[in-house]
Amino acid sequence: MIQSRTPTPFTQKLRKNGTISFFVLPCLLTLLALVLYPFCYGIYISFFKTNLVNKWNFVGLENFADAFADPTMYASLWVTVKFTVFVVLGHFLLGIGLALLLNREIRFRTFFRALLLLPWLFPEVVIANLWKWIFNASTGLLNSALTSLGLISEPMTWLGSVDLALPCVIFVCIWKGYPLVMIQMLAGLQSISKSLYEAATIDGANRWQCFRYVTLPGLRSTLVVTLILDTVWWFKHVTMIWVLTSGGPGSVTNTISVEIYKQAFEYSGKYGYSAALAVIVFLICVLIGVLQRKVLTRNDA
């Protein structure tokens, strides 16, 4: 009679690791194919002047030198900084305000949470085309509403105006992105114990003092992570800006990401130069994350 052998601890561990690897491997291969390979390939072509087919002239750091000598890069970076600062500020003001409201015991709270989350769920292209129609000078809903109310006497070219294009793009991006901050802050608020508020109230703290000394410290880690993610995401954003204005009029909304797209696909295929710009943007995003984390966590014990 054949007796079955009891697996040794080493064999059990090997089987367990093999099972885990079996399920993790597809995800790992997908990440390698869709994230790591394009990332490394982008860095690789930044050292060439190439058409990506049969022209591969190695130029070393020449593309980076050209980028730092190009006034257009600095102009687009300045537009990007203004765009990012106002969009992220809008996200946090609106997101935290709505999170505080939705964290209270109000009627239809679940309905309002679902409703306010909708802008984040729709694709960026859909949102951009919707607002592009709303801002349309001749057939747009905004001009029609303002004209009927007597607030303007003639249609305005919202996205074609040098003074209004960037504020309009910022407004749309705030409307699109605030739900992410709202839901993160709401989750953070619900993790704060109510006993802390009760103790603060007993000690005589008012609402502002409760917010300052209980809510903000409780949200600190959530604020740090959300701020870094939101800043980096919108610093390199391109989709909605491209659909709304394509960087125009002139270069008013020409962010660095839009400039990268133009250099690659509109200006005679400067793929190496655009890749160098993309590497610079990546390094700036890393620097933003490191600096924000150090500044926001410097008082942590």
Rank of each mutant, 00 (worst) to 15 (best):
Q3C: 08
T11I: 12
K13Y: 11
K16R: 13
G18D: 08
I20K: 10
L25P: 06
L28G: 10
L29E: 05
L31Y: 15
A33G: 10
L36C: 08
T50Y: 01
K55R: 10
N57V: 10
A67S: 06
A69T: 08
D70L: 05
M73P: 03
M73Y: 14
M73C: 05
W78P: 00
V81N: 00
T84A: 00
T84I: 00
V85W: 00
L94S: 02
G97N: 02
L101M: 12
N103A: 01
R104G: 05
E105C: 05
R109F: 03
R109M: 04
T110V: 13
F111Q: 14
F112L: 14
A114C: 11
F122C: 08
P123C: 12
V126P: 12
I127R: 12
N129C: 10
K132H: 05
N136W: 03
T139Y: 11
T139H: 07
N143T: 07
L146V: 04
I152W: 06
L164W: 12
L164R: 11
A165R: 01
L166R: 01
P167Q: 00
V169M: 02
I170A: 00
I170S: 01
V172F: 02
V172L: 02
L180A: 11
V181K: 01
I183M: 06
Q184H: 03
T201V: 08
T201G: 10
T201E: 13
R207W: 15
W208P: 11
F211T: 12
Y213R: 11
V214H: 08
G218C: 06
G218I: 06
S221R: 14
V225C: 05
V225W: 04
T226Y: 05
T226Q: 03
L227K: 07
I228L: 13
D230P: 03
D230Q: 15
W233D: 13
W233Q: 13
V238F: 15
T239E: 15
T239N: 15
M240H: 08
G248R: 06
P249V: 07
T253H: 03
T253M: 03
T253I: 02
N254W: 06
N254C: 06
S257M: 15
S257W: 15
S257K: 15
V258S: 12
A264D: 04
K270A: 14
Y271A: 01
G272C: 10
S274H: 10
L277F: 13
L277W: 11
L283D: 02
V290K: 04
L291E: 05
V295D: 09
L296I: 09
L296Q: 10
T297N: 12
N299Q: 13
